[in-house]
Amino acid sequence: MNDLIRQAIAAEAEERVDSRTVLAGLHKAEKRKPFGLIVGVATLTAAAAVAAVVVPATIKKTDASPAAPPAASQNVLLIGTDDSEFTDALVLARFDADGSVSAVSLPRDLQVGEEKINRLYGQAPEKLTGAVEQLTGVEVDHYAAVDMGGFGRIAQIVGGVEVCLLAATEDERSGASFPAGRQTVEGDRALAFLRQRMGLPHGDLDRVKRHQAFLTGLAAKINKDNAVALAAEVGRSVRVDEGWDVLAFAQRFQGPVEIVTGTLPVGAPVDGPAGQALQADPGASRQFVADWFGGKATPQDGCVR
């Protein structure tokens, strides 16, 4: 029987992976760039989640990198662009050392000076980050811009993202057609869910809530098995500022992370040179962001318009 055992164990050992793949992994780790990892952190509304959750799941930290510096919190502006150079989603996210993420959505129709905030990124990224800093009183350490068109595929990769609608809704322009209640969206339906603002009681403000709901739902679906595919997809559509070592940043998060999303308070609608806009309220904005990032963030109810 001993020979049989010997053969059986040898057969099991024969299954081993090619040592070259491990070597490659070791070399990458040396350069502190495990996987071409993603840029993950980035992403629109969802970036916060994707990154912080995907990256640790993919890298499998364990105690392999004891040299990682103690994490300080960082503020990252996540910018969601659609087909045009206008931004459809703006999220200021604070990544804390303990892996928690507090995110504040900035409505895209906010009036900043003579313009709406969603025009600034197309002119110059610094113009946008500067305006956000002034509005919120918080320093923007980095930014990441993501093409929101990729979110249909992202949702597909995780097997659909669960969202909950308070009421049924239809909108031809975005292709939205959703019943009320809990449902899973992916592909074109996910895009329609993220794009629809016509036919909603509060238009873009309701859409912001949808972005947040999608983000939270997406975070819940990310796991070790889909993380790699997800990372590849996210990486394809993200741009970050020069000088941001996203990998080093992402590696500090042990995941899973908790994400709390909220929306910046805004003033009344006004007719500006760029059409109807929302008045900014710097005082309230700064107070809100300070509270939200200071530990007063509270999870919101799951169902949205």
Binding site: R16, V17, T21, V22, G25, K60
Partner: peptide
């Protein structure tokens, strides 16, 4: 890798372990 695969009976787990250990 052969040793790790034989004790784990899972080549992917073996790979993870060997890589981390190294």
């Amino acid at each position: 890798l052969g040793y790790a695969t034989a004790i784990t009976c899972d080549k992917h787990l073996a790979q993870d372990i060997v890589q981390n250990v190294l």
